[in-house]
């Protein structure tokens, strides 16, 4: 084989290998298990268990990426993967006092950042009818109907995306538990924490099984 044919082939094979590896890497690092492998994510995971977004309408566990990453494998998805991957790595390895769950992170400052990357398309994948709940059974409240009218441009024009109004859907930091809109969610967390504490006091060995119960 002439030498000038070897190089292009090697480059092509290399390119295909790199693309395949990055495709595998991108999907492998978007799994729930991967997200939760960092201790910083444990409060969020714990709160999600008692949220309205623990399970989807067809009773499947909702993965982090279903809300927090843009859908598909387009430039938006890749850009967010690179950006949040770099940010998470820097925060994980260089943030002081990151030994506790939640690390040295201030959640009130993280919230706007997290909301930036929740695409409306992600919400609309399950909430197809904005005048009913995700199961398509119960109608939304009167205020919800007015707000969604304006979101859809039928009555006024909403200038906010989903996450602009709908907050604390899957995670609820302590400082947001006082808010009226979060009362049911906060009550569930409080109840479950007391139950768990009681169980831990009765049987200290059972405490470690909590991790396995994650959906």
């Amino acid at each position: 084989m002439p030498r000038n044919h070897v190089l292009p082939r090697a480059v092509l094979i290399g390119l295909v290998a790199v693309l395949a590896a990055s495709a595998w890497g991108l999907s492998a690092t978007s799994s729930r298990e991967f997200c939760l492998s960092c201790h910083e994510m444990s409060p969020q995971a714990e709160e999600q268990r008692w949220s309205s977004h623990a399970l989807s309408a067809d009773k499947k566990p909702v993965a982090c990426a279903e809300c927090h990453l843009p859908p598909g494998f387009g430039p938006r998805f890749v850009a967010v993967k690179i950006y949040s991957g770099l940010k998470d790595a820097v925060m994980h390895f260089f943030l002081p006092d990151g030994s506790q769950p939640g690390g040295g992170l201030i959640r009130a400052e993280l919230q706007p950042q997290a909301r930036r990357f929740v695409d409306d398309d992600n919400c609309l994948r399950c909430h197809r009818d904005l005048y009913k709940d995700a199961r398509g059974e119960q109608a939304v409240s009167e205020l919800g109907k007015i707000a969604h009218d304006s979101y859809l441009g039928k009555n006024g024009q909403a200038r906010s995306n989903c996450a602009g109004c709908h907050r604390n859907l899957a995670h609820l930091p302590v400082f947001d538990r006082r808010l009226d809109a979060n009362r049911a969610f906060a009550e569930r967390i409080r109840k479950e924490l007391t139950l768990e504490q009681a169980r831990a006091e009765q049987n200290p060995n059972e405490h470690n099984q909590k991790e396995e119960a994650l959906p």
Binding site: P75, R76, A79, V80, I82, Y83, P112, R116, F117, R159, S160, N161, G164
Partner: peptide
């Protein structure tokens, strides 16, 4: 370019909401 894309494609608040009509 990457950071420009990120800031434009994922604005903290929607561009049209940043300013009152």
């Amino acid at each position: 370019g990457f950071f420009l894309y990120i800031s434009l494609a994922f604005p903290g608040s929607r561009c049209e909401a940043a300013k009152h009509p």
